[in-house]
Amino acid sequence: MRIARIAHAGGTAHAVLDGGTADLIADPFAEPPAAGGAADGAAGRAPVRLGRRLPLAEVRLLAPVLPRTVVGMAHNTGPADRALPPQAFLKPARTVIGPDEPVHLPDGIGRVDAEAELAVVLAGSPAGHTPDTVLRTVFGWTVANDITARDLQRSDPLWTSAKGRPGFTPLGPWIETDLPAPDDTEIALTLDGVPLRPAATSGLARGIA
């Protein structure tokens, strides 16, 4: 199922994308947890449909989720990174923009790289879970562009200035709730209209969980 956030003539909404239409639904992250599933939040719950459909031609796709923060994982590009310890980094919410929004780069920022990533959208806290159970907290999957200012990264060990600028995490265009093989999914990136070499999550140093 493809779940999106959209802008339309009446405002913004969540919707299930079905063919050429957007079927409006209640905010899936605001719904109360199902009985017995409080720890896992919205994961696995059916969307609440509002009975209104809009043609896709009349809507604009926004970032499919507005996270409080974005957690990235470094040292996970390929097998060689297995010799390095896992390293998480944070990106503030202000970095998140929609899939077709422009990224404004300040003058003098230097080299800037686009990095296509598989993004995991959590519906609940992973605290207390094991690798065997943590995927129960996953609401779905989307694509992120982890934009990085390389010249700034060299002088900032926490990468805050290099990765935390407004617009440095384009997300979307939707959340896929039924990704069949998150540990073996190909991700491709197009830069200035030129397709770059695709990569797959099967090549990561560590698995999703």
Rank of each mutant, 00 (worst) to 15 (best):
V121A: 07
A63T: 04
L24H: 08
A35W: 06
M73N: 00
D18A: 15
A144C: 14
L66F: 00
G140F: 12
T148M: 09
L135C: 10
T77I: 06
L122G: 06
V121R: 02
A57Q: 12
G44R: 09
V143T: 12
G124Q: 13
A149L: 03
D156R: 00
A35P: 14
V71C: 06
G44H: 08
R136K: 15
S155M: 04
L118D: 07
G72W: 07
N145Y: 07
L54M: 09
G140L: 11
D151W: 01
M73E: 03
A74H: 10
A43G: 08
D23N: 13
E58A: 15
T148D: 03
P92H: 07
W141C: 08
H75P: 02
A35F: 12
Q87D: 03
R68K: 11
A127Q: 14
L50C: 11
V143K: 01
I109L: 15
A35D: 14
D18Y: 00
L17F: 12
P102K: 03
A39G: 15
A93T: 07
K91P: 00
A149F: 03
R150M: 06
T69C: 00
N76W: 05
G37Y: 05
P47M: 09
E101W: 03
P79R: 09
A114P: 03
V16Y: 00
P99C: 07
L24V: 12
A15G: 13
P47E: 08
D81C: 08
G41F: 09
F139L: 11
F29S: 05
D113G: 00
A26E: 15
V121N: 02
P67G: 05
L50H: 08
D156Q: 01
T77M: 09
P126L: 12
R154M: 04
D18M: 07
Q87A: 15
A93N: 05
D107F: 08
A119N: 00
Q153L: 10
V138C: 10
P85T: 05
V103F: 08
Q87H: 09
R111F: 03
G37K: 14
G128M: 11
D23I: 08
P28W: 13
L66Y: 00
A34D: 13
H129M: 15
D156T: 05
D113K: 10
A149V: 03
L66V: 06
G19R: 10
I25Y: 09
G128F: 14
V138K: 07
P28C: 11
L122F: 13
G108V: 06
A57Y: 07
D146Q: 08
A83N: 03
A149I: 02
R136M: 06
A63R: 01
